[in-house]
Design a protein around this nucleic acid. Sequence first.
DNA 1: TACGATTATATCGTGCACGATTGATGTCTG
DNA 2: CAGACATCAATCGTGCACGATATAATCGTA
Lengths: 143, 143
Amino acid sequence: MTLTPSDMLCFALHSTAHAVHAAYAPLLQPLGLTYPQYLAICALNAADGLTISQLGAELRLESNTLTPLLKRMEAAGWLTRSRDTRDERQVRLRLTDAGRDLAARAASVPRSFAEKTGFRQSEIADLRDILVELRDRLKPAKA
Amino acid sequence: MTLTPSDMLCFALHSTAHAVHAAYAPLLQPLGLTYPQYLAICALNAADGLTISQLGAELRLESNTLTPLLKRMEAAGWLTRSRDTRDERQVRLRLTDAGRDLAARAASVPRSFAEKTGFRQSEIADLRDILVELRDRLKPAKA
DNA sequence: TACGATTATATCGTGCACGATTGATGTCTG
DNA sequence: CAGACATCAATCGTGCACGATATAATCGTA
C-alpha cells in the first residue's frame, strides 16, 4: 500500500500551487512582476504605509524573505522603504506613483486567471474558503 | 475595489501550500528529508528504476530541479543514479536499502499529517480531487 | 551511411522560502 | 536611571523552482 504522490492531498496542493504560479507568470511578466511581488503590490495598494511586519502578517512571510524582495521592488522604483520616525526599528513601505500605476495595470489579472480556470466565481470562493480553513488549522495567523 | 491577497484564491493556495509544507517539516526532519525529497522517495518506493523524466512526470518537475535534488539524495546514500545501458541518455534511479528503509519509516507521515488537519478522510480526498481538477485545467500533465 | 532533428540530462543564473543568528531600537522594572 | 528583556529588520546559508542554454546520445531519412 505504498502511497504515491498522486494519492496525497499535500502533493495535490503543492503541484496545484505551482500550476497556479505558472498560470500567473504570463500575466505578470509583461508588468515585470514576480508572483510574490504581485501580492506585495496588491497588499500595499489596499493599505499603504504598512511596516514589514504588517505586510508579513498579511502575506505570511518574515523579514528574511521580505527584506530582499522589497529591496528589489525598491530598486525597480515601485516603492520606498523608510524608517518610521517614531519607532526607528520599523520600516514603512509606501508605493511610488509608478507602483500605484502598476497596481492599476495589474487589476485585471485575477479576472484573467479566473477565466483560465473555467471555474465559476462561487466555486472559486468556496475552494478559497476551504483552503483558508485548512491553512488556519495548520498554522494560525499571528497577531 | 482593490483586491487584497486574502481575497484571492491564488493566495489561499500559495499560503496553504506553505502551511502544509511547514506542517510536514517536523515529521520529516527526524528522517533527514525535505518535502520534495520525501515525494521522490515515495514515488521511487512505489515504482523503482524510474528515469529522471518519468519521475519528473510524476512530480511535475524537470531535470533542472531534479538533477541537483537527486544528487543530494545520492550523496545521502538513499538512491543510485546510473545511465541506462540500452539508452545512455537516460538515468535510472534505484533506492538503496537505506532508501527503502527510509520509505518504510516515512509511511506513517501522511496519517500524522491528516490528524493535524482535523479533516475527515473523505474531506481530504474531496479537496484533493478538486485541486487536481484545477491543476489539470491549468496545466495538463505531459505524456 | 551521413547528417539534421529529437530526446534526455545537466548546468547556470535568478528569485523565493526559511531556520538561525545578529544588531539596533524601544520598553519595563528594580 | 541602569540593566534585562522584547521587538524589528537585516544577514547568512541551504534548498527548491524555473527559464534559458548546453551537451551528448539516439533516431529518421535522404
